[in-house]
Amino acid sequence: MIVEAVMLQVKQGMEEEYEDAFRQASKIISSMEGYISHELQRCLEVNGKYLLLVKWETLENHTVGFRQSIEYQEWKKQLHHYYDPFPTVEHFEKVHLS
């Protein structure tokens, strides 16, 4: 399993509209192969700042399966115009400590 982590900055004054759009777009991502779960966290200190965490079975489920899909084009259409600057996506894997 991998975790996709994205720090999002939403344009000022568009936060409520963005959250509504994200709720709708959540149906898209949750239908994708290899998707496990996702959550959107709102920053308490910085207005318009969010943290998106998505769990995928494999890196390729995100980078190929989702990002190269028709569904991603709809995701992009619904959400990408809210971001400024455009976010950087990073992927993480669990470190086994025992």
Rank of each mutant, 00 (worst) to 15 (best):
T88S: 09
I70P: 03
L40F: 11
T88I: 13
G65A: 03
S98Y: 12
V3F: 04
F86S: 06
K94P: 11
S30K: 15
E15R: 05
G65K: 04
Y82E: 01
K49T: 15
V89I: 15
V3P: 01
K76N: 06
G13S: 12
S31N: 09
V3H: 14
T63E: 04
K77E: 06
T88V: 13
E33Y: 12
K76I: 02
C43D: 15
K27F: 11
K27T: 12
T88M: 14
L51V: 14
E57A: 05
V95T: 15
V95R: 05
I2E: 06
I36V: 12
A25W: 00
T88Q: 13
W56R: 01
H62F: 06
H62C: 06
I70Q: 09
R23D: 13
D20L: 09
R42L: 07
E71M: 09
E19F: 07
A21H: 03
W75E: 08
H91K: 02
F86K: 05
Q73P: 06
V6D: 13
E93R: 13
F22S: 12
L79R: 04
K49Y: 14
C43H: 12
S69G: 13
Q78I: 10
K49G: 07
H81N: 07
Q41N: 13
F22D: 03
M32Q: 14
Y18F: 14
T63I: 02
Q73R: 11
K55N: 00
V95P: 07
L44T: 15
E90H: 04
G65Q: 07
R23W: 02
K49D: 13
M32S: 14
I2L: 04
M14L: 12
L44Y: 11
K11S: 00
V6G: 09
E4T: 01
E33L: 11
E19H: 04
Q24H: 07
A5G: 15
D20N: 05
T58N: 01
S30Q: 06
P87D: 08
A5I: 11
I70T: 04
D20P: 00
Y82V: 01
P87K: 14
E45T: 12
Y50G: 00
W75R: 10
Q73S: 02
Q41A: 10
